[in-house]
């Protein structure tokens, strides 16, 4: 009797091991897909051939959460629904897109008459957006991340009147990278996606990445 029991146990153990092996094999094998390529569709700059068969899972990419501004409607939930408080989502300024406007839609409350930095003129609820005179008629706007709560008010103002250089982004020095992002769950536009950790930004208007060659050259020079 004990002998038969032992045998059955061994058999089951083998079975479970095999099942776990099959499961992991299937999961890894199924990730062998162009869409899940951690270089993200773009095969240029990838050393492997286009008919790449290496399962993406084997690339061992960590994934992090990011916000796609093309979908975002600035509902304010990034400020309220993050497990962190204040939120790990912050306004990020793509300076390259900024018009350095005097009358900045992201800085001033709509209808502001005198364009001064007086607190009652500021749109930002925490005065995190800072305005600095550069030269006539340009002003630089920067974000004090310690103060920013990621509400997206300035983002909406900038997008409505300006170029949309103020954008909401998950700041990965703050994000806990929850297995499931609680903002993603409540995002009405389903604008949150997982992106490879080596490309953590979805900031618009910074243009295409430098080609690898140039980056290498810069690295050598710098």
């Amino acid at each position: 009797m004990p002998g038969r029991r032992e045998f059955l146990n061994t058999l089951m153990r083998g079975g479970i091991l095999a099942a776990l092996g099959l499961l992991s094999g299937a999961v890894i094998f199924r990730s062998r897909d162009e869409k899940s390529c951690s270089y993200g569709f773009d095969c240029s700059g990838c050393s492997r051939s286009k008919s790449c068969m290496l399962p993406a899972a084997l690339e061992a990419r960590q994934m992090v959460w990011q916000l796609d501004m093309t979908k975002c409607i600035q509902c304010g939930r990034c400020a309220t629904n993050c497990v962190m408080s204040p939120s790990a989502v912050k306004c990020t300024h793509a300076f390259a897109m900024c018009g350095y406007c005097d009358l900045c839609g992201g800085y001033f409350k709509p209808g502001t008459k005198t364009l001064t930095t007086a607190a009652e003129n500021q749109l930002c609820p925490t005065n995190a957006l800072k305005r600095k005179f550069i030269e006539d008629p340009f002003f630089e706007y920067t974000i004090d991340e310690e103060l920013c709560i990621g509400c997206g008010k300035c983002v909406k103002g900038c997008g409505a009147f300006g170029n949309g250089s103020l954008q909401l982004q998950v700041r990965h020095d703050r994000c806990k990278n929850c297995n499931e992002c609680s903002i993603a769950r409540s995002c009405p536009a389903q604008a949150f996606t997982r992106v490879p950790a080596n490309k953590p930004s979805l900031l618009r208007g910074l243009g295409p990445e430098l080609p690898k060659e140039t980056a290498k050259k810069n690295q050598a020079n710098g």
């Binding site: 600035q74 939930r77 309220t80 709509p110 008010k153 909406k156 409540s186 009405p188």
Partner: peptide, 15 residues
């Protein structure tokens, strides 16, 4: 439904 109030709403409607 999720909370539909945005405490940080940008109000342009008046204008």
């Amino acid at each position: 439904k999720e909370d539909q109030k945005n405490p940080y709403d940008y109000k342009l409607n008046e204008l």
